[in-house]
Amino acid sequence: MEEEEGEVKLFRTWSSPFALRIVWALKLKGIEYDTVYEDLANKSSSLLEYNPIHKKVPVLVHGGKPIAESLVILEYIDEIWNQNPLLPQDPYQRALARFWAKFGDDKVWESMKKVFMKEGKLKEEGIEEAKENLKHLEEELKAGGKRFFGGEVIGFVDVALGWLANLPSVLEEVIGLSLITQQTFPLLSKWTHEFANAPIINQHWPPKQQLVTKFKAMHQIFMNKQA
């Protein structure tokens, strides 16, 4: 396809779980690309030009054309490069995949943020919200009866929820709270192991100790603001 041609660049940071989605998608598709690492405290003029509304990563630039927002980028990648499809072919299943990916961002991610950033009653509310949201994911895995959310191979929902295979264990080291265990969510716990250790996924995780150090510093900042 003519649309497949053109240089591919990914603007990202080393730690962004949203940018990591794009890394996985490009690797799963076998697409060559250049990485541009951004310092979000000193954003480049290119990032501000390519994403003037949100001014954040990730941004995919394909043939000089920028695409922002990670779930939008994932769909773009899947439409442009047909090999190893991420989304199902059936329209209804595609709609469900989009639903669960958005649920992950709007509900699961936001409740996890509350657990990490708040204290006292608000933190307890966040824990209950997170557990309820994770319960829905557990039930979805049970209903599907497959290895991954996408079936027997990694798909759109797996990539979108991939941060759950890594960040909760980082947060456990920072705040001493474990939400996804074999006892609480056995299927989700199994999925995190399967996903995290899949070869293409496993090769691209950020260094865990660096993430722990970063999140400890962030957590301290949040706590100081609330003191």
Rank of each mutant, 00 (worst) to 15 (best):
E129L: 12
V8I: 15
A217N: 15
L177M: 07
L122P: 00
L60A: 12
F215A: 07
G104A: 01
E119F: 08
A101W: 01
P168T: 14
G151F: 15
I77S: 06
F215P: 10
H219Q: 02
N84G: 13
K225R: 15
A130M: 12
L122N: 08
E173F: 07
S15Y: 15
Y76E: 03
Y76Q: 11
L86S: 01
I127S: 06
A165N: 14
I180T: 06
L28Y: 00
T35K: 02
N42Y: 07
G120F: 04
K65H: 12
I31N: 03
A160S: 09
Y92D: 08
I73W: 11
I200Y: 05
V61N: 05
Y37L: 12
G162T: 05
A143Q: 07
M117L: 05
G64D: 07
N51T: 10
F156E: 02
F99E: 09
E173S: 10
A217T: 05
V57A: 09
N197V: 01
Q183F: 13
F116P: 02
A196Y: 01
Q226D: 09
L47A: 02
F149W: 11
F103I: 04
R98T: 00
I77K: 10
S111I: 06
V174E: 11
Y37G: 08
K135M: 08
Q209H: 10
V8S: 09
K142R: 15
G63T: 03
S44C: 05
E129N: 03
I31D: 01
F195E: 04
I175C: 12
W14H: 07
I154W: 11
A143S: 12
P91D: 07
R21E: 01
G6I: 10
N197S: 11
I22M: 10
E132W: 11
F11N: 03
L40D: 14
S189F: 08
S178K: 14
E152L: 05
W14P: 04
L167K: 00
Y92E: 07
Q182W: 08
S178C: 09
L164D: 01
L47T: 01
P17D: 11
I221Q: 12
V23R: 04
L86H: 03
I73V: 07
F195I: 06
A130Y: 07
A198K: 04
M117W: 06
Q93V: 03
K27W: 08
I154T: 02
Y76N: 04
E125D: 06
F185Q: 13
R147V: 02
I31H: 12
E140T: 14
E128Q: 06
Y76D: 05
V115I: 02
K56P: 11
D106Q: 03
I175Q: 08
L171K: 09
S111F: 09
